[in-house]
Design a protein around this nucleic acid. Structure first.
Lengths: 138, 138
DNA sequence: GCACCAGTTGCAACTGGTTCGCATCTATTG
DNA sequence: CAATAGATGCGAACCAGTTGCAACTGGTGC
């Protein structure tokens, strides 16, 4: 599944006029295969382990490029390095277990609607939002 | 009003066994007087302008101390340096105008409740949360 | 008032995550 | 297969924030 996904992404990028280099292809594969939310250093480590010669600088540049293409999303949690996730899943927010560091995803249509209402009341429209719940198991 | 508020804070801190130095008093005054959400460099600039000799390192250390005392709150928006606000107002979230950079405050009891429900359903309780709406005027 | 000392400060050096300049390389187009 | 716009690797730079250390100072006890 992730193999196919990586291929899809390659085609999408080429279509958008983004040059498909060996390094970018490797990163796309790593990202498509990731089930978690890795940071740049972790993605770099995985790409290198997978046999791809990539520099950390290129990882950063590629992540920025892929984000601009809407292929991945940047997550900035409290005081930790930025993490990344594939943008193929429908919109969702994040819940972080403060004890284990585990990141979970959730979605609430009702919260989304309330947010839009609040913004609208004040004469604004939402461009983007961020909702993070820092939680602890009971 | 902000003068009185700064005095209140001084007493509260002294009561908590936090030594009240010239630098801390100056920062308390600057923070109590601030109507916006300044970052460390800005607070430092204001304190210096107000005639207080304070180093930036001390500003950082003081902000950490005041936060630990629950006197101020740290706001970390997207990729900008952390901002700070007095913690005297009741809990609220933030709405950021992406064009002007202006930060507004809002509160929705219904959203808070929904958040708690979502966490509870998954067996968690909320320790802390962050909700930011990045908006644009219509 | 005054001495004492744990806690605080200023400075400059350091950190960690991320970006950038530049010479070299390469995916794509014709 | 040549041409070239764009991508890469390297190390240096950057930025917000932190820290080690020697000099200072609030607050207490006398």
């Amino acid at each position: 599944m992730s193999e196919g996904r990586a291929k899809e992404l390659e085609d999408a990028l080429r279509g958008a006029g983004v040059r498909l280099t060996r390094q970018r292809a490797a990163l796309l594969r790593v990202i498509a295969a990731a089930e978690d939310h890795p940071d740049a250093a972790e993605l770099h480590a995985r790409a290198v382990t997978a046999g791809a010669g990539v520099s950390l600088a290129t990882v950063y540049r590629t992540l920025t490029t892929l984000q601009a293409q809407g292929v991945i999303e940047k997550l900035e949690f409290q005081g930790e390095p930025a993490r990344w996730e594939a943008a193929d899943a429908p919109h969702h927010d994040h819940m972080i277990d403060v004890d284990s560091g585990e990141v979970m995803e959730f979605h609430s249509e009702r919260i989304e609607k309330l947010q839009a209402e609040i913004a609208a009341e004040l004469g604004y429209e939402i461009v983007h939002h961020r909702l993070e719940l820092y939680v602890r198991r009971r």
